[in-house]
Design a protein around this nucleic acid. Sequence first.
DNA 1: TATACTTATGAAAACGCTTTCAGAAAACGC
DNA 2: GCGTTTTCTGAAAGCGTTTTCATAAGTATA
Lengths: 348, 348
Amino acid sequence: MIPSERRKRITIKDVAQVAGVSTQTVSRVMNKFSYVSEGTRQRVEAVVEQLGYRPSTLARSLIQQRSYTLGIVTFGLKYIGPSRTLNGIADKADELGYMLLMKELDNFETNSIDEVIDSLLARQVDGILWVVPEIGDNHAWLDERLTKIPVPVLFLAMQPRDGISSVATDNFQGAVMAMEHLLDCGRKKIGHISGPLSWWEADERKRGWRETLLKIGVDASEEHCTEGNWSSASGEQAFIQLLESFPDLDAVFVANDQMALSVLREAHRRNINVPEQLAVVGFDNIPESAYFYPSLTTISQDLQLLGEQAVQNVVDMIQARQGKQPIISPQSIFIQPTLIVRESSKRV
Amino acid sequence: MIPSERRKRITIKDVAQVAGVSTQTVSRVMNKFSYVSEGTRQRVEAVVEQLGYRPSTLARSLIQQRSYTLGIVTFGLKYIGPSRTLNGIADKADELGYMLLMKELDNFETNSIDEVIDSLLARQVDGILWVVPEIGDNHAWLDERLTKIPVPVLFLAMQPRDGISSVATDNFQGAVMAMEHLLDCGRKKIGHISGPLSWWEADERKRGWRETLLKIGVDASEEHCTEGNWSSASGEQAFIQLLESFPDLDAVFVANDQMALSVLREAHRRNINVPEQLAVVGFDNIPESAYFYPSLTTISQDLQLLGEQAVQNVVDMIQARQGKQPIISPQSIFIQPTLIVRESSKRV
DNA sequence: TATACTTATGAAAACGCTTTCAGAAAACGC
DNA sequence: GCGTTTTCTGAAAGCGTTTTCATAAGTATA
């Protein structure tokens, strides 16, 4: 098969000419809601069909100054979070008639961020979704740059800030749920394996662990917590270290399922019985976690919903700015996770 | 913070006026490689900086008839495959200066496919990447529709077809590698748990299982294979069923790691020792598989590379069509997977 | 000195659409 | 019958660029 030759694009003029009307009339037919006589409409529609005419969204975007496109900035698509969130974003965007213009960040330097935003703006995106985990001060740029962006921007998985719109899972509350469940199971000596603490989400989960313990009068010693980097490999190391610094622990709350998997495995190797001797709770509810051995109790965060909510919000903001709705003031939304109880934390 | 008001876009005219030159001169400065005197260049650049001027890619795309944007059509972002491939696509696209316009398919009806393609074309994408697994005859549309698409289209994870460009993992070869490894381990009674056989990839993996057995003179009975749907849950069912129809098997090749996980777990439950009594090999090499208990031997497919290769190829095709290179004839590329040996298949 | 490039700049057209603006025809009120 | 509104259609301008085309000066060639 020879690649089809570059045919000239069929334009509104072609349709107008064949149908014997002006281009404006064709435009009216395509966009409905305007005075066109029934006869003309049918004639034009027939020609459109016959010629296979499809209006150029590009040209329309140029004149209307809006593109029905959302800019999506991601980081770490290889992590479970961004990738599952994207699924929700894609679904909702489709439902609302928006396309997605994607750009993956490869570092957090300010000029790289400027470049990404500029390239999105150059294509007239109507709004931007920032799907980048908050790590260290990688969101610091927004203090001075954000006001200069002429379209709505919404941040995902970011610590709530006054006057800035964001949507995030309530990691703190999730951790509290995990901890209260362990306490309910009669555990008292609860260790924690955290994610990298430069991540806001990891820090929140750890805070949930600490504050729940403090609430019942137990001191959350730093000895009782080790830090991983989300990977199973790091989870193994963190657990081994934890066993040394906190030998008589009877439960461990692990900041994600992948690291929890290593805990289960290492415990098995050392003949530590789960859940009898050691209860384990993870975070994320990855599909496999129900089939770990033993199956893993975990906190489920609805990333699909997170993505959908984010799109809905940013689209609301866009419409508001078009002046069709009253203006919306920025707000931070928390999505509540849920506890999934499985074998790894059965009550003793 | 009050949302910044909709400032008027700074255009090339503004720059031209302030710098006291014509718009074409500004255009020349922005695009380099044209006669502009040093003095003028510097003056214009200063104004560009001062005004914060950024050219509208939209307008440029309109006149140049190309957008430096790739259309990405996906299906099942929630599956590991498409999502990891996307990572490679994003990286390479960035490297080559392309943006990604994404659209997720929610069904395979022809008019839904037409709509997706039209919406991509309406935005002047320079090429299309079809990141949709081949299931049943969901690629049947391309026979009559493909020639009508005026830009290069490249298919991922599709059965090679004459005259159509595609990039895929060599699933058959991967399966053969898994099987030969099991034979090397001294196993003879090897069962198979397949993915849904309407998927081309699942079918290929099964074919690798069957043909390897035939090659050594063993009949690959249908009794020795059960079918799952990629999920861990289905893997459990499939394994239980397999144990009934093929009770004395000594090895099982499972079509993906998630189902293999269930096999490990169920075997453990039944006190079937892995790998002593039963060797298990998976497919995909998901990050967790190294931390299953026992760790899982598996076939690693480099989806990152797959995505990168796909982008490179489609960009080559685009450039060729721009007439800058000799025309490229369509080709199907197979990416070779690799065997990762771990505990679940140790030699007895 | 005349002829040809090379360098530097601007005027105007074009990309494919939507948006006023304006005019004509038909329908309506009195 | 005349003014007013409603319905229908087209001319022309404009969105923000790039692309010919044209012109003018400077520089090298003969």
